[in-house]
């Protein structure tokens, strides 16, 4: 009843999937700029939240 003796190959495949996602992202995204980053903690920062959340509506 076993297809693989270990879960390790599956975990490695998932790790590779994540690395591929991050690699594709780095190719199509603006370069990282830590000097333009928001303050470390949103609470008390005076900055509005981005709103990129699952509850976000279709059009703001």
């Amino acid at each position: 009843m076993k297809i693989l003796p270990s879960r390790r190959p599956v975990a490695i495949a998932v790790g590779l999937f994540l690395l591929i996602v991050i690699a594709i992202d780095s190719g199509v995204s603006a370069p990282l700029n830590p000097f333009a980053a928001p303050s470390p903690i949103a609470l008390g920062s005076g900055q509005a939240a981005g709103g990129a959340h699952c509850a976000a509506p279709a059009v703001r």
């Binding site: 998932v14 994540l18 996602v21 991050i22 992202d25 780095s26 995204s29 603006a30 370069p31 990282l32 980053a37 981005g50 709103g51 990129a52 959340h53 699952c54 976000a56 279709a58 059009v59 703001r60």
Partner: peptide
């Protein structure tokens, strides 16, 4: 309409390493 909304267009153009839910998702898997 969703993906062309300004906030989502900005997310698509910026790195996943600056997206809140992407970072916590990556963290959960890791």
């Amino acid at each position: 309409a969703f993906w062309s909304a300004p906030a989502n267009m900005e997310r698509v153009s910026q790195s996943l390493l600056t997206d809140v839910t992407s970072l916590t998702n990556i963290g959960i898997i890791a």
